[in-house]
Design a protein around this nucleic acid. Structure first.
Lengths: 222, 222
DNA sequence: ACCTGAACACCGTTCAAGT
DNA sequence: ACCTGAACACCGTTCAAGT
C-alpha cells in the first residue's frame, strides 16, 4: 500500500510478495493451514528467507490481515444516512470474515494495524458528523465490532455443527423445549430455534444495536 | 456429570479423569499449549490411550469446554428481575472467558454440547417468563452471546497490544485524531480512545443491548 | 548482507505389535 | 479389548555455514 516495493536482488521478492503469497495460500487452503513452509515453497524460496521480513509467523499473519482488511473495503460511501452507513459497514465486515472464517480465531491475538485503524477512524468520523458525541461514537464502534465478531464466531460454530452430525441435529432444540413446559409450545420452540440457527447471524444482533443507537441519538437531541 | 465413571481396569482412568487432567493443563499452560502428549504424560499414560475416549484432540477439547462451562456457573438466581439476570449472566460468561482467554479462538470451532444448551435453556426460559416472546428471547440470547464473545475477543487483542509495545501505543489514537479536524478536539479524542481501550469491554456493548431489550419489551406491552 | 540446509523440539495421528 | 512404541508427516524456529 504505502509503496514498500524494495525488491530483493537475489530472490526478486519484496515484502508484499510474501503477503500476496500468504493470501493465496489462505484463499486456497485456509488461514489455519498456512505455514511458513508452504508460503515459502510457493515462492521457491527457503522458509528461512521470510524471517528477514517477518520475524515470526504472527508478523506474517498480521501483515496479511492488514491486506485482507484493505481489500474487504468495508467503508461505505460517505453520503449515506448513518443508520444505513453503520449497517453496510457491519455487513461488509461480517461478509468478508464469513468468506474467510479462518481469520476469526486470530482476531483476538493479532496486533491491530493501520488498516484496522483507518476503519475505526472512518466510523467515528461518520457518527460525530451525524451528531453523536465522541464517547458515543467510540462506544458504538466497539459494540459494532463485538456484534460482528460474535456473529461470525456463532456462524462458524453452527457450520461446524451442521457438517458434523447429519440427522441428529434435533437434539439441541428438544432439550430446550423440554424445560419450557406445555406440550403445544414445545414443537413451536424447536422450529423457532432451528430457524434462528439457520438465519444469518448478523441479522440478529445488528438491528438491536442500531435501535439502541437511534434512541440514544434521539435522547441527546431532545 | 451424568455419571460416566467407568474406571478402566488397566490404567485406572475414567473419561472424566482425562478431562480433569486437560483442565489442569489448561489452567497451568493455557488452552493453546494443550496437547495430547502433555495431558497423557500428566497421567503417566501413553498418548494413544486417550484415543479410545477421544477420537480426536477436538473431542477432548469439546469435553473440556463442557466442563469449563459447567464450572463457570453462569446462570444467575431465578428471582432476579430480568435486566439484572441478563446482566449477571453476561458478566459471568465474560469473566469466565477472560480468566481463560485461550478458549476464545476455539468457541467458533468446537461443537456445542449439553452444558451450552443448558445455558441457552435457562436464558430463554427466564425471558419467556418475563413476558418476552420466544422469538424475542432467542434473538436476545444470540445477541448476548455475540456481545460476550466479541467483548472477550477485543479484550484479548488489546491485551496483546499492550504487552507488545510499551511506550508506542499513542500511534493508534493520533491517527484517529488526525482525520478528525480541529486541534483542540484531537487530544481529547486520543484520551477518550485510550480510556475505551482500557475499559472493561463488556461495559461497552452490554448496556446498549439491555437498553434495546427494554424498549422492545415496552413496545410489546403497550 | 542475505539466503540455505540441517537440526531441534515439538505437534496430531496411524498402525502393527504386544498383553 | 485395550495399551504401547515406533513411525509418519507435519509444525515454528535456531544456527552455523555458505555466497
Amino acid at each position: 500500500m504505502h509503496g514498500d516495493c524494495q525488491v530483493n536482488s537475489r530472490t526478486g521478492l519484496s515484502r508484499s510478495a510474501y503477503v500476496e503469497a500468504a493470501l493465496d495460500v489462505i484463499a486456497q487452503v485456509g488461514v489455519d493451514k498456512l505455514s511458513m513452509r508452504n508460503v515459502a515453497s510457493r515462492l521457491n524460496v527457503s522458509p528461512m528467507a521470510m524471517y528477514k521480513h517477518f520475524p515470526t509467523k504472527d508478523d506474517l499473519l498480521a501483515a496479511s490481515l492488514e491486506e485482507f482488511i484493505l481489500r474487504a473495503d468495508v467503508v461505505p460511501p460517505a453520503d449515506l444516512p448513518w443508520e444505513q452507513w453503520v449497517e453496510r459497514a457491519a455487513r461488509g465486515m461480517y461478509e468478508a470474515l464469513c468468506r474467510e472464517l479462518g481469520w476469526v480465531p486470530l482476531l483476538g491475538s493479532l496486533r491491530v494495524g493501520a488498516q484496522a485503524i483507518a476503519v475505526t477512524d472512518a466510523f467515528v468520523s461518520k457518527l460525530v458528523e451525524e451528531g453523536f458525541s465522541i464517547e458515543q461514537s467510540l462506544r458504538a464502534y466497539f459494540a459494532l465490532i463485538q456484534v460482528v465478531v460474535g456473529a461470525v464466531c456463532l456462524r462458524s460454530s453452527i457450520g461446524a455443527r451442521a457438517s458434523d452430525q447429519a440427522g441428529a441435529d434435533d437434539k439441541l432444540p428438544s432439550s430446550v423445549a423440554g424445560r419450557l413446559q406445555t406440550k403445544d409450545n414445545a414443537r413451536y420452540i424447536s422450529l423457532e430455534l432451528e430457524s434462528f440457527l439457520r438465519r444469518d447471524q448478523i441479522d440478529i444482533g445488528l438491528p438491536l444495536l442500531i435501535a439502541a443507537l437511534k434512541s440514544q441519538l434521539e435522547e441527546a437531541r431532545t
